[in-house]
């Protein structure tokens, strides 16, 4: 799941640096993408392409790791054996996705050690929705269904992007997501069509999560020079707004049909078929993503503890003669 649908820190004003690139190589690179061919790790690529893809794939990987925490916390308290097994399988998938994505990012030149360091040192971002807590089982179900659904919208688009290793990883990830989405839907429907207490619990969880879900795809795109170039290079495959509209189109009806309501009085589809909604609180979004959310400290602390607790195992298995070679594809 969890391709944080928008990449945080896309530079908006800074120069693209394209004037420093070799014009002939750049033309060949763009021609390759224009005729639908993928870029492979040893190909020449502009600095901006490498930098932006590294940041995007790395953030995606971090989001998988951190995103598994709010659901992982419910494994021990899942209602019943069947749900527990499924929740475990899902969390295991998410962590597996992180492994695939770290490797894809690594082919661009940033080592896995550096990416993991940047996560636990707070230098790298991950999807902001995971800075919020899952106080009940129903909250975990909302993540399983709707956050995954949002991520799938984004990942299906990105799987058609131009970078070979990322496409290979996403093909595998998307195949596994099919289970997550169905599992999440099943869990939400079970609660929403259950007893009055279950219904109430699910409705309250949805109310808590809806504002975060509306920020999941990131702020409205300003068509900056960067956005335009990144879309031409097939790094960014759809605008944030397009992804959000697609998500609302697919999932609002499914939410309403099981008798749940959405906590936004302005949410409606206008005559042009475009969804209107209350603008999310982007100031709050900024505050949380920069560290001041309800769970930022806990997420990083838990990740750090896992790193520290595993250090002796890694030390014991070190091979003194090992040499670093970048993965090939």
């Amino acid at each position: 799941m969890y391709g944080s649908a928008s990449t945080h820190d896309i530079p908006t004003q800074a120069t693209t640096g394209l004037e420093n690139e070799d014009p002939i190589l750049l033309a060949e690179f763009e021609a390759r993408i224009a005729r639908g061919e993928k870029i492979e790790p040893t190909d020449w690529m502009p600095q901006l392409y490498r930098k932006q893809l590294t940041r995007m794939i790395e953030q995606h990987a971090h989001s998988e790791i951190i995103g598994s925490l709010p659901e992982g916390t419910w494994i021990t308290r899942a209602p019943g054996f069947r749900r527990k097994m499924a929740q475990m399988a899902k969390v295991q998938d998410e962590v597996g996705h992180a492994q695939l994505l770290y490797s894809a990012a690594e082919t661009l030149g940033k080592t896995r050690e550096q990416m993991l360091s940047d996560l636990i040192n707070g230098k790298s971002k991950y999807s902001n929705v995971f800075n919020y807590p899952t106080p009940t089982w129903a909250d975990s179900n909302v993540i399983s269904w709707l956050i995954d659904a949002g991520a799938i919208v984004n990942q299906m688009a990105n799987a058609k992007g131009s970078y070979g290793p990322y496409c290979r990883a996403l093909d595998r990830i998307c195949a596994e997501e099919a289970f997550h989405l169905k599992y999440g839907h099943d869990a939400v429907v079970h609660m929403a069509t259950g007893t009055p207490i279950q219904r109430k619990m699910m409705q309250e969880a949805l109310n808590r999560w809806w504002p975060a879900i509306m920020t999941f795809f990131g702020p409205s795109d300003k068509m900056s020079t960067h956005t335009e170039i990144l879309m031409r290079w097939k790094v960014k495959m759809a605008t944030n707004d397009a992804c959000r509209q697609q998500f609302l189109d697919m999932y609002v009806p499914k939410i309403l049909e099981i008798g749940l309501t959405l906590p936004d009085a302005n949410l409606r589809k206008n005559e042009d078929g475009v969804w209107e909604f209350s603008e999310p609180d982007w100031e709050d979004f900024k505050r949380v993503i920069n560290g001041d959310g309800p769970c930022n400290a806990e997420r990083i602390a838990v990740r750090r503890a896992a790193e520290e607790n595993g250090a002796w195992v890694r030390r014991a298995m070190q091979q003194p003669k090992a040499q670093y070679v970048r993965p090939l594809a």
Binding site: E113, L116, A297, V302
Partner: peptide, 23 residues
């Protein structure tokens, strides 16, 4: 786990902390 509320950032990982790669 009794984790501290905040702690100084750990040092960056050493090279090959994550081992070499296999395909």
């Amino acid at each position: 786990l009794e984790l501290p509320e905040s702690a100084p950032a750990p040092p960056d990982k050493a090279a090959l902390d994550q081992f070499p790669t296999y395909e």
